[in-house]
Design a protein around this nucleic acid. Structure first.
Lengths: 151, 151
DNA sequence: AATACAAATGCTACAATGTTGCATATTTAT
DNA sequence: ATAAATATGCAACATTGTAGCATTTGTATT
């Protein structure tokens, strides 16, 4: 699990991509690793109030360029970020998994290991990347709804 | 084809949804109908310079609520809008088609009539809507690239 | 361990998009 | 023709995205 990645693994990850080991970067990595859904920059800002917004912005950008994280938009069009599986390479992500957008809490969950269909696109369309996204209700919000209904 | 929808059809569409027939609304509808890709508000603003930004914003919002158009985010996270197929109902869209995002021109094409796979989501996730999105190169940009290569 | 260079941060400022309140104007039902 | 309901235009502000530049920090090298 991502949550198991420890400090040393994050340091290695940075080194591997020739990125300097800095506190803000390590914190971003551990934040992202600690959640099972993608995180927006505003969410990160709330926790890392001592880190500049522009810095955060650039950290997320390099991480994405290097293939360390990937970006996905939530239902509000805000960018959310999640750690990539280790198979992602620079400039060539392999994020062909399902993104599940919860309409209640607005979280975006990355559900991996999915068989994507072999699609036939209309003539002329060259596909580089496919991804499935679903909207619905996540387990957490589904539970809450049940509890309310019981009362 | 959507492009064939004429003025009267748009007026009917507004009436059907109890929306007043106004010039800005009719223009938005005809703009959206005239393209085979989704259109962002900024794009609309360029053409409809005499219409207020806030008005445009609200028009797009009611249209979406009423199920007349649907919203899809492009690779920059900007909202783009396209006419819905007639099967869309208020608060329950049926946009289970492929959205193709061109990495060159950034246009989003709605490619309908696609067989979506029967997905098994992890326990607890309740899906309301599924959509596939692909990134790649659209026919228009593919052509351009060839021409450049020839020279 | 000290230094020197490259890279990252913090600050600032601005651009683009999203959003709302309110007065005025327009549409539509009567 | 008029009134009520609704839409528009204007203005202002919130949020997110983005860039330049001076200063600080990390790291390779001596």
């Amino acid at each position: 699990m991502n949550a198991k990645k420890n400090k040393y693994q994050f340091e290695d990850l940075l080194a591997k991509h020739h990125l300097k080991k800095t506190e803000p970067r390590l914190r971003v990595l551990s934040m992202l690793a600690s959640k099972n859904f993608a995180t927006s920059q505003p969410d990160l800002e709330e926790v890392m109030i001592d880190v500049d917004r522009g810095t955060l912005y650039r950290i997320l950008n390099v991480f994405e360029e290097k293939g360390i994280i990937h970006k996905v938009f939530d239902l509000n069009g805000t960018a959310n970020f999640a750690l990539c599986s280790s198979s992602c390479e620079e400039n060539h992500h392999h994020d062909e998994h399902l993104h599940f957008n919860c309409v209640v809490c607005n979280n975006v969950y990355c559900l991996n290991d999915l068989d994507l269909p072999d699609l036939k696109l209309p003539t002329g369309f060259q596909s580089l990347n496919l991804s499935l996204s679903a909207t619905g209700i996540c387990p957490k919000c589904g539970k809450k709804a049940e509890q309310v209904a019981e009362v």
